[in-house]
Design a protein around this nucleic acid. Structure first.
Lengths: 213, 213
DNA sequence: AGCATTGTCGATCACCGATAACTTATCACC
DNA sequence: GGTGATAAGTTATCGGTGATCGACAATGCT
């Protein structure tokens, strides 16, 4: 009685949402987020464009949903990287690499979470909750990942093996350092980078050397 | 009622162009690049919207022009920072700070140069020159700044005071590390950062320690 | 004066994200 | 089986966007 049976009237009902997300992910990865229109998504998904808005309030919400899903994968990967983890610089570097590899594997999700332009909305914010717009949920997912860094750094900090005596400061600059490489490789792939593998290795080594004793 | 100026033949070529750039810079700084329309720019500049296209081919070109101008300032600042420069870690850190301060002082220019989404254009590039679109000239200006980093690192490298034995690799990861902090502070100012001054100091110290012996 | 050039504008195009109003299909219930 | 409620999808449309076109006014040159 209370149970609301999942209706599947015309399309596959609940599966529609997945179809939309699949279509959007494919298009986003292919042409970038802002270059994809809702009409294109709808066409791939096999529905009319307004039908999207039965499942997502805005186009950005579609990107946000894809983003949180991708970050769930990152969280999983980093958790795996810390199984049987002993705080050695080698393992430290391994975790940093997981972060970088994830960003390069999911550039669109990464862009939505950390690189997209937010609507600043000065004093004229007409939104109900200006902080929880597009960057809200993805940013929350990003914070969860950041928490892992804090945890990692704290381990070394407790052993007195960090350079900074402020674990939070060390975590934030470490994260920023990682983000820099990922963001630049995503945003400017045509830059004459050196060999990518060497680049990543050098970067991770620099960060580790700069953060740990 | 709207006595919108019937004519504005006053502008003498170059002056109009400056007025447009001034209007755009003001609006970009105020509301972000993608939230500003050509009509808004035109209204502030005191001309009609189509008149913009007599001076700039696209809206992105306006942002690009502002960007290269801003980067000229950065080049100037970094040149000043290297006057009477002796390759000590202290001076090294000072130059890194110049870069960070610039990015935070000109977030819109920085975003256009290094953070904006480029139209990837797979094999179906219908543009005349896919690489010289929005990111073209700003990227060139950015490369000029990057060259200063290469120069700086090369000095230490020649003295055998760099960690990496590849000066180019060291330059690129150093730049990436700097970019990370600037980009994150611009894109996610609402993140619970620690005190900004301490954050920058810690970051610069980490990068220096990670790159120099 | 006459004429070409230049600069500007109103009108307009194709497209965008989002919404309104309407139609259709499915369900719960009697 | 009939009936009303409602979820899901559609067409039509809105205001706004970047960009283009043809007409026209202002200017400079001969």
């Amino acid at each position: 009685m209370k149970i609301r049976s999942p209706r599947k009237p015309k399309g596959q009902g609940a599966e529609r949402r997945e179809e939309i997300l699949d279509a959007a992910q494919s298009l986003f990865a292919q042409k970038g987020v802002h270059a994809v229109s809702t009409r294109q998504i709808a066409e791939i998904a096999g529905i009319s464009q307004p039908a999207l808005y039965a499942y997502f309030a805005t186009k950005d919400d579609i990107a946000a949903e894809l983003c949180v899903r991708a970050f769930a994968i990152l969280g999983q990967r980093m958790a795996e990287a810390r199984v049987d983890y002993t705080p050695t610089p080698k393992n430290f570097e391994r975790c940093l690499r997981v972060y970088i590899d994830f960003g390069l594997d999911h550039p669109d999700a990464y862009r939505v979470a950390f690189m997209l332009e937010k609507s600043v909305d000065g004093p004229l914010s007409k939104e109900k909750n200006g902080l929880e717009k597009t960057g809200g949920k993805p940013m929350a997912a990003g914070k969860a990942v950041f928490a892992v860094f804090v945890e990692m750094v704290a381990e070394f900090h407790a052993r007195g093996e960090t350079v900074s005596n402020d674990a939070m400061a060390a975590s934030q600059v470490l994260w920023a350092g990682l983000h820099g490489l990922v963001a630049l490789l995503i945003a400017r792939p045509e830059f004459p980078w050196i060999d990518r593998e060497q680049l990543i290795a050098t970067h991770v080594a620099m960060l580790t050397r700069g953060a740990l004793k």
